[in-house]
């Protein structure tokens, strides 16, 4: 299994740290961000597969962050983390293209499962894109030179 890069965006420092440790033990590469802006920075710098995003945060709101992620990095899968009361925003998130949502407090194994599922979806999508590109190169080999990816 290729290394999955996970970004957790949450305002609870301790949650970030512990979850990072736990997930890394499971073989994920985990990055953390304490708010939306830092999260966006992290996405720019690194290749991230899955983002675990707290819906309610000071500063940039979870839904706003999701919108930006989907605009800048459409292939990154996002799992919303909601404290129940923000269920509507989680649902809004789903409509905006989030992969799924989890209600706090969630089990770490459940979280892992969702991350895995999200990663699988992304991999499948990437595969599809890869195959499409490949098909195009085969049918129009000259285009490799005419267009920069």
């Amino acid at each position: 299994m290729p290394l999955t890069n996970v970004l957790i965006v949450d305002d609870e420092e301790r949650f970030l740290k512990t979850t990072q440790t736990l997930l890394e033990k499971e073989g994920y590469k985990v990055f953390t961000a304490a708010d939306g802006y830092k999260g966006m920075e992290a996405l720019k710098d690194r290749r991230i597969d899955v983002v675990v995003l707290d819906v309610k945060m000071p500063g940039l709101d979870g839904v706003e962050v999701l919108k930006r992620i989907k605009a800048d990095h459409p292939l990154v899968e996002v799992i919303m983390l909601t404290g129940h009361a923000t269920m509507e925003t989680a649902i809004d998130g789903l409509k905006l293209g989030a992969f799924d949502y989890l209600t706090k407090p969630c089990d770490i194994p459940t979280l892992k499962q969702k991350i895995m599922a999200a990663h699988d979806k992304r991999s499948a999508m990437l595969d599809k894109i890869q195959r499409a590109k490949f098909d195009r190169i085969i049918s129009h080999p000259m285009e490799v030179f005419s267009k920069e990816e």
Binding site: E12, R14, F15, T18, T19, T21, L22, K25, K56, L81, G83, H84, A85, T86, T103, K104, P105, C106, D107, I108, P109
Partner: peptide, 24 residues
């Protein structure tokens, strides 16, 4: 209650992670 539930769910999330951590 919405406010309370939300505010309590956050620490619960932290605690849950910690428990998972200890178990690990």
């Amino acid at each position: 209650s919405t406010g309370i539930a939300h505010e309590i769910n956050n620490p619960l999330q932290v605690m849950k992670s910690e428990v998972a951590m200890i178990q690990s």
